[in-house]
Design a protein around this nucleic acid. Structure first.
Length: 841
RNA sequence: GGGCAUAUAGCUCAGUUGGUUAGAGCGCUACGUUGACAUCGUAGAGGUCAGUGGUUCGAGUCCACUUAUGCCCACCA
């Protein structure tokens, strides 16, 4: 009747344009929303910080899941009038980034980082960072994320550097950070320490050797790593092992392959007398377990392997040899001396670096640690660990799904001190200065000459652990805001955040650190809810990876099917904490759905007066008189009302898939298939109002899920999508909380369905359906006419039926009940065999 | 070795606190449309809810055990 819309929704035509308009409007920033009057000044806040993607990342489907879920929450809360803030940022990912750049310069310039030197190398890294950062940010925008770009942060930008230094100093002064000589996981390739949870295990074939240290040693030991035996300072046996009981406490001197060793025989419960010979050579410097035994028994710690993975110079003839080489030599020697008793093939779990896959060499080294067990005054004389466990146990932090709180607690309870120094160049350099024996810990270099800064940088998780409050301006927020009137003190206003949306694999690495650091720094939990999504797998349930070539590139999919379709495909049919299988076909399905929604609007716009102005606060400038409504009208309105309630509740409970499915079901099966079909028979002014009202509310409900197509339609309805009339800042439909679950006239409407079904069938088949299929009666006005011939019926349908009223009370063919309020001349052969009547005025 | 999860239609999965005849999407079959709709509509086939036992008036749902698969943690010196 009015405007012509294209038959097919073309996402490419709208998406970038809409995103730009949103961005330009400033509404992603809640302060602007307040300024422009789309939300109240003192409205409740709702904050999410985006888990910062590594700058080395390209956007993958996991990111899109994260964005889709967070964006649903943010948009939903924004529409509900809250000051919704979603902070974007990127992570410098110290080791990962350095590795990438090292590879790059090796390939392009044939140089190592040492060839370049620290300063030049960091220039290269920073150049790289600028490019990749821009890429990932551009990609995030393509996903429709309503992130407040005015607050964009980087874990290594100036503001965050200040915060990290301050944090280090505060923790040091409180006694939560110390420097110690302890055993650490060392990656000989990365030339750096790794935290316990950055070590992965891989099963491999290994040789298990059984031998005596020397001829005069009374019994044999077993090991897979003979070369480390150069550093043995004890032999451990089970205290109950009869074979060795007599030796416990003795100190034996042996010559092991030309290396003199002093070995104390100790007893330890951890030794399994069934395994190997039941005797274990203790190498405190190169085994985590042995190190602990050494601590307990006051053993000497002798380092035999250096940071290059080579035997330390001066150790007999093995000095300078690589580990594997030394192992071979030692076995040869033992064989020569006839000391080797057994050589078995076993499966062994090798510790490898999570970044580069190189075998980890445990060794002792002087490093910086966060003490998780030290009681801190600042935390009310509790340790970081205790405090972090306490908040979870008290339920201050809610995990979705709940089962992950157990994983969190298990992890926390077994937590050891966290080694935070890394021997790489890219990252936050440790704010510690040395001059001779003097040491100074502080944010700035101390005055006076001769101070040199610690060369190490901090574990990348140290800065990302601060993410919720460092992005909100800690510790300078209040000061920084002092000179700017109208600005909020972000930290005070927006912290703690409401939700952390992330993958479950990162609970230990990240979530636990955030909790500890936030409790320490600002005495608040960092977030109230942790929503954990699963991994996105390929159609066969395999992990997507570059090498397998089974990955789905989200940007390609966005190009092809539109952002809304990609987002929907990741939301529907998915529950928190569970992995999901993805395929291109699934995305195509939702492209079709977006198109369906588009065509619903197209139908509405072309057949009815399109825009009854929506009004920003959901106040439609028209009123629907219930008394004027037909049964179908009341049905769709009730159904809609119920839908608003259900969808709202589901989003509040993080049941996004369920909400989406309800919406889809309503949109397709109730609204499009039934109500729009009915409306074809009765084009009244009232229908027009109702249809538009339902359509507009439906768009609102869909908006958090499919922001682009809904905003596009909203614009086509005649709203001015350049200002406050954005659907994005429109208000969420209202509902009455305590209405019962089902629409009051649900049952009645089943009849309407039956009628429409019959009409459709008649229309499409040109045949009167078999009697048993017909369960309803149609009449209009007060004249009843039984139509028996097919031709007549079709004629009636196609000609002048202006108003079609449906009275379910006329016949209720269900449950064997008969309510005979039918007009006197209506004829029923039997109650289950109702005929179709078209009644004309 | 410890822990967690999953097992429901051919495929991907929902199923809230136990309550009529277990649902959706895709796929499949038949018929019909292509004047809102890369369609769409109508009808239909398809399930011993992994197995066994238990609690209950009633179990896909709660409990125990078993089987299969996946993951996490620890670790074999």
């Amino acid at each position: 009747m009015n405007k012509e819309l294209p038959k097919v929704y073309d996402p490419q035509k709208y998406e970038d344009d809409i995103y730009k308009k949103w961005e330009d409007s400033g509404f992603f920033n809640p302060d602007v929303c307040v300024d422009k009057g789309v939300c109240e000044k003192d409205a409740e806040t709702y904050t999410i910080v985006l888990p910062p993607p590594n700058i080395t990342d390209k956007l993958h489907l996991g990111h899109v899941v994260m964005v889709a879920i967070s964006d649903i929450l943010i948009r939903y809360n924004r529409m509900n009038g809250k000051r919704a803030l979603w902070i974007p940022g990127t992570d410098h990912a110290a080791i990962a980034t350095q590795n990438v750049v090292e590879k790059k310069i090796l390939k392009e310039q044939k140089k190592s980082r040492h060839d370049l030197g620290r300063e030049k190398f960091l220039d290269e890294v920073n150049k790289f960072v600028k490019e990749t950062q821009a890429t990932i940010i551009h990609q995030l925008k393509k996903t429709g994320a309503s992130l407040d770009w005015s607050r964009e942060a980087f874990t290594l930008d100036e503001q965050r550097q200040k915060a990290v230094k301050q944090m280090f100093v505060d923790m040091y002064e409180a006694g939560a950070i110390y420097q110690g000589h302890r055993i650490v996981n060392w990656c000989p390739r990365c030339q750096s320490t790794l935290a316990d949870d950055e070590v992965e295990h891989k099963e491999q074939d290994a040789k298990f050797y059984t031998f005596k240290y020397s001829k005069d040693f009374p019994f044999a030991i077993s090991t897979t790593r003979p070369e480390t035996k150069l550093g043995d300072t004890a032999v451990a046996v089970n205290p109950d092992d009869k074979r060795y009981k007599k030796y416990i406490g003795q100190e034996l001197e042996v010559n092991f392959c030309g290396m003199p060793l002093k070995l104390k025989i100790i007893a330890d419960d951890n030794v399994d007398s069934e395994f190997g010979t039941g005797a274990l050579g203790v190498t405190p410097a190169h085994s985590m377990v042995d190190y602990e035994m050494a601590q307990k028994n006051n053993l000497e710690i002798k380092k035999v392997i250096d940071e290059q993975g080579k035997i330390i110079e001066g150790l007999s003839e093995f000095g300078g040899k690589r580990v594997k080489e030394a192992r071979k030599m030692i076995i040869e020697k033992l064989t020569e001396q006839n000391l080797l008793e057994k050589e078995e093939d076993i499966k062994n779990n090798l510790a490898i670096c999570y970044r580069c896959g190189t075998a980890i060499e445990p060794l002792t080294s002087k490093q910086w640690f966060v003490s998780v067990d030290k009681k801190l005054k600042k935390l009310g004389n509790k340790s970081l660990k205790e405090k972090a466990i306490e908040v979870a146990k008290k339920g201050e932090i809610n995990f979705v799904p709940e089962r992950f709180s157990k994983r969190y607690l298990d992890w926390m309870e077994n937590l050891h001190d966290w080694c935070i120094s890394r021997q790489i160049w890219f990252g936050h350099q440790i704010p510690v200065w040395y001059k001779g024996d003097e040491i100074y810990v502080g944010a700035e270099k101390p005055s006076g000459a001769g101070w040199t800064q610690d060369e190490d940088v901090l574990d990348t998780w140290f800065s990302s652990g601060m993410w919720t409050f460092s992005t909100l301006g800690w510790p300078f927020s209040a000061k920084a805001m002092a000179g700017k009137p109208n600005k909020t003190d972000d930290l005070k206003t927006y912290h703690p955040t409401q939700v952390l949306e992330t993958g479950y694999e990162i609970i230990t690495l990240w979530v636990s650190r955030m909790i500890m650091m936030s409790l320490f720094a600002v005495d608040q939990i960092p977030f109230e809810n942790v929503y954990l999504h699963g991994m996105v797998l390929d159609a066969k349930g395999k992990k997507m990876s570059k090498s397998k070539g089974n990955g789905i590139d989200p940007l390609e999919m966005i190009e092809k099917y539109g952002t809304d379709a990609v987002r929907m495909s990741l939301i529907i049919n998915n529950t928190p904490g569970n992995d999901m299988k993805m395929s291109e076909q699934k995305i195509a399905e939702f492209r079709n759905f977006a198109n369906k929604l588009w065509n619903i609007a197209r139908y509405a716009i072309t057949n009815y007066e399109p825009c009854l102005p929506a009004g920003r606060l959901g106040i439609t400038n028209y009123k629907i008189e219930r008394s004027e409504c037909t049964l179908a009208d009341r049905w769709i309105l009730d159904k809609m009302h119920n839908l608003v309630k259900e969808v709202t509740q589901d989003i509040e409970e993080f049941k996004f898939s369920q909400a989406g499915e309800m919406l889809r079901d309503f949109t397709w099966n109730d609204f499009a298939d039934w109500y729009l079909e009915i409306s074809k028979f009765e084009k009244t002014e009232n229908k027009n109002k109702i249809l538009m009202k339902v359509l507009q509310d439906l768009l609102k409900l869909w908006h958090p899920f499919m922001p682009f197509v809904t905003e596009a339609i909203w614009g086509e309805l005649g709203n001015d999508v350049s200002n406050k009339e954005f659907l994005m800042v429109n208000s969420w439909p209202t509902f009455v909380k305590d209405t019962a679950g089902k629409p009051e006239n649900e049952k009645d409407f089943d009849l309407v369905r039956d009628i429409i079904t019959a009409i459709r069938q008649i229309k499409s088949t040109n045949k009167i359906p078999p009697k048993e299929k017909i369960k309803a009666v149609i009449y209009a006005g007060d004249k009843v006419e039984l139509i028996e011939s097919q031709a007549e019926l079709i004629k009636s349908l196609r000609t002048g039926v202006e108003e079609l009223e449906i009275k379910p009370s006329l016949a209720d063919g269900r449950a064997g009940k008969e309510k005979s309020e039918a007009p006197a001349d209506a004829k029923f052969s039997k109650i289950d065999d109702i005929k179709i009547y078209i009644l004309k005025n």
